[in-house]
């Protein structure tokens, strides 16, 4: 698991009609969708936003499928998701809280809504650090490489994020753990 680091994909033009390998793309999506959705939820704190993020990344991936199948397609998708989640955060003004409530129509009794709610209240870059460190189990160095920042920044963002999560959980449930 994890995002391919510094993957250098060879430039290649898209040619209409050249996407002859949709079967393998569809198979890839069917096989990896649950994993990508979990990663998307870790990045966004929302199952709804996770589905949007995954769809956006997979559309971009489909357009390049013929050339990335020999590389690391899942790494490509994950990197696109991380970049997109951070850029959406920037677009929204860095501190805006995603108010999207979790889907109630498919309520999973195992789902920790309080934690996801707290996660949504973190700045997206902090969520990305949490997703990479605690979902993908990347090291601080690998996380820094993916996010293009220093290890010190990863440490401070992770520390700050955990402190915020503790505070938010204590605020909403009275129990930080």
């Amino acid at each position: 698991m994890g995002i391919g680091m510094g993957t250098a994909l060879r430039p290649e033009r898209w040619v209409d009609g050249a996407m002859h390998d949709t079967d393998s793309f569809d198979a890839f999506v069917r096989a990896r969708l649950p994993e990508l959705l979990r990663f998307g939820r870790a990045l966004t704190g929302s199952e709804h936003a996770a589905a949007d993020l995954v769809q956006d990344a997979l559309e971009r991936t489909l357009m390049r499928w013929s050339r990335i199948t020999s590389e690391d397609p899942e790494g490509y998708v994950r990197r696109a998701m991380v970049n997109r989640s951070i850029s959406v955060w920037r677009k929204l003004g860095r501190e805006r809280i995603t108010e999207q409530p979790p889907s109630e129509s498919y309520r999973d009794p195992e789902r920790d809504d309080a934690l996801l709610e707290a996660l949504r209240r973190l700045p997206p870059r902090q969520r990305a650090v949490i997703a990479l460190r605690y979902y993908d189990d990347l090291t601080e160095a690998q996380t820094a490489a993916v996010l293009g920042c220093s290890i010190g920044t990863v440490k401070s963002q992770a520390s700050d994020a955990m402190a915020k999560l503790r505070g938010l959980l204590a605020e909403t449930t009275g129990d930080p753990s």
Partner: peptide, 9 residues
């Protein structure tokens, strides 16, 4: 929390 499945998609 992050490892539970996302259902409904």
């Amino acid at each position: 929390a992050l490892r539970t499945d996302v259902v409904g998609v």
